[in-house]
Structures are given as structure tokens and as C-alpha cells.
Design a protein around this nucleic acid. Structure first.
Lengths: 201, 201
DNA sequence: CCATAAACCTAACATCTGTTAGTTTCAATA
DNA sequence: TATTGAAACTAACAGATGTTAGGTTTATGG
């Protein structure tokens, strides 16, 4: 049917999405042009539109894919019967895992979501808000049960999420340090930061 | 000399810089147009050029102002004779302080510096790299002295800096929680996360 | 081997971008 | 009151942007 009907394993559409995520991460959504994206894929800009709807769609798909993953995990954690600090540890480890295995998309969804347009923008904002709220609820339960030191739950969640969140140097560090070691360091610092000090110095 | 020779206290140049920082923070550097900036200042786009050199200059000034502040503080801390955990606490408190009192600029310098052009871009990158390296050196000394748990120093610095770094919700949280309370929560979580557990559970 | 249709191309559009040129305005000064 | 000069304006530039229109290539199924 076409020059390359459907490439070996990954379709051209997938390639475009992957290259787009890479460029969005590297230069930002606004700073990435369709001509640049096309060039990196190996075709002309106009040809992109045989595979995708437009530039905005590329960003939308990235953002909602990531948001859905985290929402799904949150539901799983909420319905488990672990104690609070274990729940938080599971969430932290999941963030690190996603960061390592889906780096480009997680980074882009975290830094470039503002560039979405309505109505997707509002929907994404709401998912983000909801996730943080549910995370904070877990922390608050931990405080009331005495497992977690008295601290503002929203602040704690903000600290945790940002600590893990997108860093341009993340992948560089992953290559130096073992990813398992990184995950443990993250958990160690953040969980110990939450834990109530039974033996204050 | 002119319609408004020099406004009450703040010059028009200062107003432009302030509005620019606000827009850059809210929408990003690339997504902010000179016409939009001008409209918010209350003049035409071309009139901006009576006060500033261009769009890039606006970003350069913001980024280097912030970078210089942190570099200065780092020198101060390095030459003090506090113990390691106190040094780190001072740095964390300074980050929080800057974040609260110079929110827009700190946020922009953290998220939008990529949009600078050479040679400023390289210079800024180097300042950033240097700051993190010096921070990591402090952490490493803390580890070798046994004040800090064994942890990869670069990872720890990355966690700390990102935990504090630009959050869109930062100022909203500041309004709810007392800023002093926020600072203490930050220090509590991050310092306890570093501290060596003498009494492991 | 021909019809098909996906995938590519070139050309162009309308709009937005940062910036410059040249002109006008007007309060302060001489 | 005439001169001055900062600060504003209008108009326009040159280039980049996302996207569309319309024609061409190419591999395949009948």
C-alpha cells in the first residue's frame, strides 16, 4: 500500500510519538516545531499529519497516559491493607520506577502540561489535584495513627512528589548509581523524613 | 522629558521585569509574547524597546540574579565553622526563604533557563553544576564524619533541591500554612531523612 | 498487471513572532 | 517660549509557526 506499510515492529505513529516525547523533554513543547520533529523522524512536516491529528494531540496523549498510570496505582494502594508507611513507600517506589522506565513521558507530563488546551487542560488539572489530595489523605491518616510525625500533609506530599519529580539530571544519575540503589536512597530519605522520632536526640 | 518621566518609586523598567517574570512563570518563556507583555504593562510592544534590549535579556537577568544569590550563600556557608547538618539546614532554609520572597524569579530561573542562548546558557549551566557539586561535597563530608547516613551524595542533593524547587502550588500552600511552619516542615523532613539513625528500629 | 490507498511530497496559507524605523507627544529645562 | 529628549505611538519587516490542499509514489491484494 505504501512505501513502508507498517514498519518492522513499531509503527510510524509510535515512532512519531516517541521522538516527540524526546524533543518535548529536551527543548520543551513550545520550542519544538513540527518541522524539527518531522526531520528527526525522517519525513516532511506535512507528512506527519497522515499519522497524527496535530501537535496538541501529541502532548495530550503523553500527559493522560502518565496521569492514568498514577491514578491506577493510587487506587491499588488505597484498597490494599498495608500500614500507612508501607503504602507511602509503595507509592514512592512506583514514582521512581515510572521515572526510570518511562522517563521522557513522565518528565513531559510534569513540566509541559500547561501547554495543553481546554478542555483537556482542566481535566488534567483535576486528575493532578485529585491524586495529590488522595496522597495527602494517606499521610493524614498516618499522622492520626501516630505513625507519622506531626506535619502539614499537603506540604509533605509536595515535598515527596517534587523530590522524585522530573530532573534533567535524573537519567545521568541513573547511569552512575544503580537504579535499585537510587530507589532505596529515595525511600530511605523520604520515609525517614516522615517517620516519627520515638527517640528524639 | 516624557509622559511619565519616572514613575513614583518603581521605574518602568522594573515594572517590565516584574511583569515579565510573572508571565514567564505562569505560561513559560516561549509561550509569552512581547505583545502580551506590553499589553499587561499598558503600552505597545514596540515601546518596550525603549526600556529593555529584548526578550532574551529579560530571561538572562532573572536567571543570573537568582544564580548569583545562591552562589553567594554557598560561599558564606562554606566558610562558616558550623557542623555539617547545620550547614545543610542553613542552605535549605535559604532556599525556602528565597522561594517565598522571590518566588517568581526563582521559579523562572529553575524551569525556563533552557531558553537562554549562548554564551549565557553555558555560563548558567556551569554555575548550576558548580553549586550542586559544592552542595554534594558538604554532604560527603557529613557522611565521612558519620553525621549523615551512607547515601549517594549527588542523589541526596538532587532530592533536597527538587523537594524545595519550584512548585506551582508553592505560593498557594504558603498562604494556608504559615511560612515559618513550612520552612520547619521542610527542614524536619529533609534533615531527618539525612541523619544517621543511631537507634535503628 | 491493474486498481487501490496509505504514505509521502511540494507549495502555500494565514497567523504569530521579535524587532526596527520613523514619527509624535509632552513635561521639564534653558 | 523654544528646545530638548525620553517615552510612547503606528507601520512594517522578515522569519517561523501549525496546518491544509493537491498531486505523486509505491507496495500489495485481486
Amino acid at each position: 500500500m505504501a512505501k513502508i506499510r507498517s514498519t518492522e515492529q513499531t509503527s510510524k505513529k509510535e515512532i512519531i510519538h516517541s521522538v516527540a516525547a524526546e524533543l518535548f523533554r529536551e527543548k520543551g513543547f513550545r520550542a519544538t516545531s513540527m518541522r524539527e520533529l518531522a526531520a528527526k523522524v525522517g519525513i516532511e512536516a506535512a507528512s506527519l499529519y497522515n499519522h497524527i491529528e496535530g501537535k496538541n494531540e501529541l502532548l495530550n496523549i503523553i500527559c493522560f497516559k502518565v496521569a492514568n498510570n498514577f491514578t491506577r496505582k493510587m487506587e491499588e494502594v488505597e484498597s490494599s491493607d498495608q500500614n500507612i508507611l508501607d503504602k507511602i513507600e509503595v507509592l514512592i517506589r512506583y514514582h521512581v520506577f515510572e521515572m526510570i522506565h518511562d522517563y521522557k513521558d513522565v518528565y513531559v507530563s510534569d513540566r509541559e502540561w500547561r501547554n495543553m488546551e481546554e478542555p483537556e487542560l482542566s481535566k488534567y488539572r483535576e486528575m493532578r489535584r485529585s491524586y495529590r489530595k488522595r496522597f495527602a489523605s494517606i499521610v493524614e491518616k498516618g499522622i492520626s495513627r501516630g505513625e507519622i510525625k506531626k506535619i502539614d500533609a499537603n506540604t509533605a506530599v509536595m515535598i515527596i512528589l517534587n523530590a522524585i519529580a522530573a530532573v534533567d539530571q535524573w537519567h545521568r544519575i541513573v547511569n552512575k548509581v544503580q537504579s535499585q540503589e537510587l530507589e532505596d536512597a529515595m525511600v530511605s530519605m523520604l520515609i525517614d523524613g516522615l517517620r516519627k522520632n520515638d527517640t528524639p536526640s
